[in-house]
Computed example of a mutant assay.
Amino acid sequence: MIRIAVANQKGGVGKTTTAINLATALAATGWRTLIIDLDPQGNASTGLGIKQSQREYSSYELLRGDATLAECAIPTAVPRLDIVPATVDLSGAEIELIEFQDRLHRMQQALADAEAGQWDICLIDCPPSLGMLTLNALIAAESLIVPLQCEFFALEGLSQLLTTVERVRERFNQKLSILGVALTMFDRRNRLTDQVSDDVREVLGPVVFETVIPRNVRLSEAPSHGLPALIYDHRCAGSAAYIALARELIDRLPNVRKAA
């Protein structure tokens, strides 16, 4: 199972929207896809229409070892897309995990214990911080997608994230690599947007995806209906961009287990 963390310690950059819609696009092209909602806000769960009553087991129980990955994962309305939902209990996990000696490797162990062949790919939606939950995801993952809002302050946060990734690679997970940086909330009417985009591409080069995700009302509306934008309105500009981004993502993935 290919494991990808979707992370940025800055909030409001389109991280969960990116995770949901990329997962939907992958599932639509034949990938057996799993999302792990590792954000205590549970936005990925809500955005996929998972009600609180359906969250008997969550990523909280998964991290604590109180339930297996198979027990926590539940199907969504999207064929071939499952999710490990999040609950508010996860907000206390960072404190509770301190008592575990392997506290930074809990997610890695949970994924290692998963039944082989059940899913082709797993996206881990991280909280907007660089705390223990995000570190668990980075240590468990093989690669990282970084949604980056096209605004000046986002660049400052990116440097901090890259430093953290390098430290994780050196100390815990030598296989961790940055699969791509996805530019989000792109507004061609704003000259600063173009400037930020150019600066990021100049510094990071080909690691930045060619596809940019525009500011789009339909992307914002979709979660309130419990649907990915690709299903809520597959013809809107935001959905078209995420379909293109998914194509780029698939081209960057290992050749193993690629869907037809």
Rank of each mutant, 00 (worst) to 15 (best):
R169E: 06
A27Q: 03
N136G: 09
R252F: 08
M1D: 06
V165G: 00
L227A: 13
A70Y: 03
P75A: 13
H234L: 06
V217N: 11
L245W: 03
D37Q: 12
K51N: 13
L135A: 15
A240Q: 15
L104R: 09
I83H: 01
L230M: 13
L22K: 00
D39E: 12
G47F: 05
R188Q: 14
L97V: 09
E61H: 15
S224T: 14
R103N: 10
P228E: 08
Q118S: 13
V203L: 12
V168E: 00
W31S: 14
G180V: 03
G42A: 13
V6T: 03
M132I: 15
P75R: 13
L158W: 02
T33E: 07
V207C: 09
A5L: 00
T68V: 11
R171S: 14
I74D: 07
H105G: 04
D102L: 08
E210H: 12
Q101R: 10
I50K: 02
D39L: 06
G14C: 11
V13K: 02
G180F: 01
L26Y: 01
A140V: 04
M107N: 01
G180Q: 02
S129K: 03
R188I: 09
L179W: 04
Q149H: 11
P206A: 13
E221T: 11
A246L: 07
T68N: 05
I124F: 03
T211N: 08
I50G: 06
C126V: 04
T16L: 05
A23E: 08
Y60I: 10
A5S: 06
W119S: 03
I178S: 01
K258S: 09
Y57R: 15
S58K: 07
P206N: 12
R189Y: 10
T18N: 02
L161D: 01
E71I: 06
A222E: 10
N8P: 02
Q118F: 07
Q108R: 15
F172N: 14
S224E: 07
S159P: 00
R215H: 10
L253A: 05
I121Y: 03
V13N: 02
K15G: 00
L22Y: 01
V212Q: 13
V84R: 02
R103E: 03
G238P: 01
G117F: 07
D37M: 11
T134Y: 02
V200H: 07
I35W: 00
F186Q: 05
I250W: 03
V200T: 12
N255A: 15
E71K: 15
N21H: 05
R189P: 07
L38F: 09
V88N: 06
I139S: 03
E99P: 00
L158Q: 05
P206K: 14
A222D: 06
L144P: 00
Y60R: 04
R32P: 06
D102R: 12
A93D: 04
R64T: 07
